[in-house]
Design a protein around this nucleic acid. Structure first.
Length: 481
RNA sequence: GGGCGACUGGUGGAAGUGGCGAACACACUUGCCUUUCAAGCAAGAGAGUCCGGGUUCGAGCCCCGGGUCGCUCACCA
């Protein structure tokens, strides 16, 4: 690559930050990193009807959490500021004036009502060509100008050639051609004075020197319109890469209804950003050495934009969770502790020592940071054993009570409350009572943890301490009568 | 409905220029470990590459036809 590439993403602040934004953002970021390029974050806030003021911050937060940083953007600035499209209306205005003057675009005075009616008729007639009927396309320049000057509400449309075809070379899919007859006279400027996506993006991509347009497949149909715009401005085309769309398990386009799509959700569940990044990188791309677990440094080292495959992948939460567990287990105890703390998963009032002790025992059992609460419940919460769980397998309630009584007696007498002693004590009690291992461990487990599964009991007993263990054993005994 | 794109096991996906027993990973099953769970280890099952033709000694990779799914036809992106 001769000159360093410049890439961008342009999310809209219209809701929770979307996993698709992260997906495309990751590829852009990695491509820029791999080639010494620049990654720009632009905010498309030109749709004032759906704009949400706090959504922009949410985007920043989510991308930063994921470790996807930008080199230029609304909050960090850069040589092409501003990066918020709502602040660039003068720039689009100039672009429109130029297109109008060159006869590449025209004002359309058709009302929304007329457009609605037109659509209605086309739908009723089951017409193949749905779209604007170009009524205003040939209004004389002077008339158009004077009507606009008199304040008549209008929009501006692109004057798409009536015949011929437009094609572009998608770097992942090859040449894609569309007949111009199938391309609508796209709206470029809305009556509220804001540009549409098509205009704003092409104008900004030109202004910001974007060399590679890496975006989702859903844009592929409108790419010819963008090509036409580049040509209208007399500018060279960037390289287009349309990456696949993420899917739900049923193969439909990924949606909130069928799959979590909010990055905030992943964060709040306790997914690790490095795991999510790793997982996203695996959708549509595979590492050359086949090793699927990797960090970002390795990803950007091996990532090649044109190695992205074109089949739309299913976002498999199960595999993500596995990957999260792998990354979680790769963390040191101190790091894990820090993450839990940073993300607010630790209980109030717990001392660092307590947390560290508990983590030493349950740490490797976590799949998500959010599992901490459940896994550590026996330590930080109250336990509510079930009577049935306190009865040894193939024994009676009275046997359970007798067993618990024996445990209380033996454990009360333990001198050093350490794992070795505790294990030996439980074992000698077991022999005295004449039960097999499951018969003593399961009731004991239920009594001290309120659950049928837990980390190894000697560790649990040591962690809980003599007082709590004995108190829980007594409560369990009383429960059995 | 028109246009465009995609199509390898349940899922992610390997297999640069046609030559395999169609990798590997997740999930699944079984076993080992073990007091349970998790992790780990071992083994196993699971597709002949959407379908039908064709070219070729040989096709997942090339050609033709069809199917299915997706996207798109907004003063939304």
């Amino acid at each position: 690559m001769s000159t360093p590439p410049r890439v961008r993403i342009a999310p809209s602040p219209t809701g929770d930050p979307h996993v698709g934004t992260a997906y495309v953002g990751l590829f852009n970021r990695a491509f820029a990193d791999a080639n010494g390029g620049t990654f720009i974050l632009r905010i498309d806030d030109t749709d004032r009807t759906r704009y949400q003021a706090d959504a922009e911050d949410a985007i920043f937060r989510a991308l930063r959490w994921l470790g996807i940083q930008w080199d230029e953007g609304p909050d960090v600035g850069g040589p092409h500021a501003p990066y918020r499209q709502s602040e660039r209306t003068a720039i689009y205005r100039d672009a429109i004036d130029k297109l109008l003057a060159d006869g590449k675009a025209y004002r359309c005075f058709c009302t929304p009502e007329r457009m609605a009616q037109l659509r209605e008729e086309q739908r009723a007639a089951k017409s193949d060509h749905q779209g604007y009927d170009r009524r205003c396309r040939d209004i004389a320049a002077d008339e158009s100008a004077s009507r606009a000057a008199s304040g008549e509400s209008h929009i501006v449309r692109l004057k798409v050639p009536l015949s011929g075809e437009t094609s572009f070379n998608d770097q992942l899919r090859g040449v894609i051609t569309l007949e111009n007859a199938n391309v609508d006279d796209q709206v470029l400027l809305k009556s509220d004075g804001f540009p549409t996506y098509h205009l704003a993006n092409v104008v900004d991509d030109i202004a910001m020197g974007i060399t590679h347009v890496v975006r989702a497949e859903e844009w592929i149909t409108s790419a010819p319109k963008h090509v036409l715009l580049y040509e209208a401005f007399g500018e060279p085309l960037p390289l287009f890469f349309h990456v696949p769309l993420l899917r739900n398990a049923d193969q439909s386009k990924i949606s909130k209804r069928k799959n979590p799509v909010s990055l905030e959700w992943y964060r709040s569940e306790g997914y690790l950003p490095e795991a999510l990044r790793n997982f996203l990188a695996l959708l549509g791309w595979a590492p050359p050495d086949g090793e699927e677990v990797f960090d970002y440094a390795k990803f950007k080292e091996h990532f090649r934009l044109d190695d992205i495959s074109t089949g739309a992948p299913v976002f498999d939460l199960v595999k993500l969770q596995w990957l999260n567990g792998v990354h979680l287990r790769g963390l040191s105890g101190a790091d894990l502790h820090q993450r839990l703390s940073d993300e607010g998963f630790l209980p109030e009032g717990a001392s660092p020592t307590q947390i560290a002790d508990v983590l030493a025992v349950i740490g490797e059992r976590l799949h998500l940071l959010g599992d901490f609460a459940e896994q550590s419940a026996f330590f930080f919460g109250d336990v509510t054993p079930t009577a049935a769980g306190l009865v040894p397998k193939k024994k009676e309630a009275a046997d359970g009570a007798r067993l618990l009584e024996a445990l209380i007696e033996q454990l009360s007498a333990v001198g050093e409350w350490d794992e070795g002693t505790l294990e030996a004590t439980v074992e000698s009690t077991r022999e005295a009572v004449g039960f097999n291992k499951p018969q003593i461990f399961m009731p004991l487990r239920m009594a001290v943890t309120g659950s049928t599964n837990s980390p190894p009991l000697p560790e649990v007993l040591r962690l809980l301490g003599r007082d709590r263990v004995l108190a829980r054993l007594r409560a369990a005994r009383d429960l059995l009568g």
